[in-house]
Design a protein around this nucleic acid. Structure first.
Lengths: 214, 214, 214, 214
DNA sequence: AATGAATGAGTGTTCATTCAT
DNA sequence: GATGAATGAACACTCATTCAT
């Protein structure tokens, strides 16, 4: 499973191999339980080379988070074509998201779980990416409201909460799909789309649920 | 800072103190970064005593997960009264959930984050509790459909996905509320209820979103 | 040669054993070349215990410097009785100094050589002790001048230079005596006393050597 | 900061650049703390080239000691003109010594401190040079005694001790002058000359200090 | 019921050194 | 003549765990 052992490769290539190995190991074992020895071995190089190129375990982990977060954002962005209706854009984005997280489960574990459980520094790194996605979803909600010929009279904080809930649900479903046999990316996307779009439409019609008095 | 030092207490009490300290430490530092030294000190006892009562770090962590998972399930169950309409039951459950996770953030971190990032054994422990909650939510959805005089013609897998999405959204919002200033449990519950209930109603009316052909 | 292996000793005792071993090892190998493993083994304990008691290699080394510097100053002070003539006091001090450095060559190496070659922090630690000795010698020179019924019209900077030269010569002779067979502490002290006392007397008589014009 | 980068230079020149860099680095950081990486970078060449020319860290260090020791001896020898009175010769030698050590503090650190704190091999290398200087001083003392029309009835061992003390004092003053602001080579030489010459004269007049009975 | 004393095993990190070009 | 790529071996330090009392 480790990279084919080939000596004397250019630095850039080796670095990617190391990141590959690191993402797999961090994703599987967790940040702390992953040992640099294991990562080096999986990458097919000696430990000093890992340090020569990536300096420390912390920097290596950060590099993993950055690379995978960027890859995920790129995947989602690439899946969406502007100009289509908002619901279609949301669908396309969700589908791309679930396809990507299913294709790279270790990467998803690194970005979503590991990055958030080992200190503020790493968490912040992952949070930056998440912000991008939340912002994207938020904008879609606003556009959808406009398309429905409705003033965006949903208060801003309300929209933020909805986007948060939607993204949170997507994240949970991604993990769920990755750990539950027979759930495809398409199914996950459909479920969430049904759950979310219908809810959003209703809200835009002013039919919202009123909590009982405290 | 730790518990007031009092010698010679009955075992059951000491054990709870240790678990308190462990939950706080695990929640704050993470499973691996938490040291038995720190936990013992925070509990106000010597390390060998911790081992005498709880045998190992793994067992100690498991005990934490069990205790806190049970506490959370109990809290949700206690918040709900049967006999009320389904939406009210869901609301009550969500509110109890957000109140509890806000009151015990370290416990929530242990059960939701730490338990899932350090090996299958721990993850399974937490998953068991989660199942209970998902089952509860599933049943509410079914009841709601029945109340709406509609046959639960939503396929079972669909319902499972919806419950999963709902619970996932709740979990994300809990963490979000715990780390975002000025978001109360009531607000989180309202946001989610709006998002979810409206969506569920729509679905039960057969107005679901159809994905484009692959 | 290592301490007789005896288990379960009180902390204070173990600590001294560790310092003994550390002084020997640092003195022989040098600060950097000495490994904590070696020190622990020589002390007859495991490495973690060394860390438990002395925290780090740096702190261990600092503790060595402090202990041995204090021991040397104490030895010199104890060798001198106030009330005797200045030359006798100087002789007694020098003799005590050479006896001590000959009895504890590793300690002398640590304080005089190692402490000065591995960073400002350590150097400062040793310099503090040296200051005490220089101050002591300086005072003796002043007293000697007074005893000789001469105003201490030697300028202060001049006296400082002389004390520095005297102490420097003593330090060099100590190392020389330690590495040259057949040179006793008494001989070293006699040589230096002859060299120094005669010179000082001459200076106090105003017979100083005038350098040629630049 | 390092030598201007120029490719393809003759070996002899490159070697001197490497030694320059090595002396500076060893002098500043110490033998063990200095890394071959740092030295190579400061020399403006790649590490393998350093190994090609100087074989190993040990040999590199040895080469540094040899070069700098020789340079120091040469400097002292060049400062002295035979035919002048002994005291003038001593003065000239001391002055040359202090001027050289002040001009090349890193070299002085290498030869005097580093060489003596990292194993017998290096110490022996530096000791060889020292012997030359001690021998030179010894001969001056003998000549001085002869000039004073006195038989050198000072026993040989006594003379050796005096030379040792004188050289030791000089070494200490050199380091002292290098680390104390405002002390010039000339001042150091004057202080030592006063201290030493007066003492030596006295001794040659038979006025020596008699130690108390043991 | 409780603890001071002690350790085996492992981790991240560094460095002198070499090979292939 | 010169170097980018790569490593074996070691070292400081930590931690879960146990023993003797």
């Amino acid at each position: 499973m480790g990279a084919v052992k080939a000596k004397r490769m250019p630095r850039a290539v080796r670095e990617q191999q190391m990141l590959d190995a690191a993402v797999e190991t961090f994703g599987q074992r967790g940040y702390m339980a992953a040992s640099m020895d294991e990562i080096a071995e999986l990458a097919g190089v000696s430990k000093p080379l890992v340090y020569l190129y990536l300096n420390s375990k912390e920097e290596l982990f950060t590099a993993c988070i950055r690379r995978e977060a960027a890859a995920l954002v790129t995947a989602v962005r690439s899946g969406v074509r502007t100009g289509l209706p908002a619901d279609r854009q949301l669908w396309d984005g969700l589908l791309a998201f679930f396809v990507h997280t299913a294709a790279y489960p270790h990467a998803w574990s690194v970005v979503h779980l590991q990055a958030r459980t080992h200190g503020e520094t790493f968490a912040a790194e992952a949070a930056a990416m998440r912000e991008e996605i939340v912002a994207f979803v938020t904008s879609l909600i606003v556009v959808a409201a406009r398309e429905a010929h409705r003033d965006p009279d949903l208060p801003e904080r309300e929209v933020a909460g909805l986007a948060e809930a939607l993204v949170g649900a997507a994240e949970s479903l991604a993990t769920w799909a990755n750990t539950t046999d027979g759930v495809t990316a398409r199914q996950a996307a459909t479920t969430l789309m049904n759950f979310a779009w219908a809810g959003l439409s209703n809200l835009m019609d002013g039919r919202n649920w009123t909590p009982p008095a405290a």
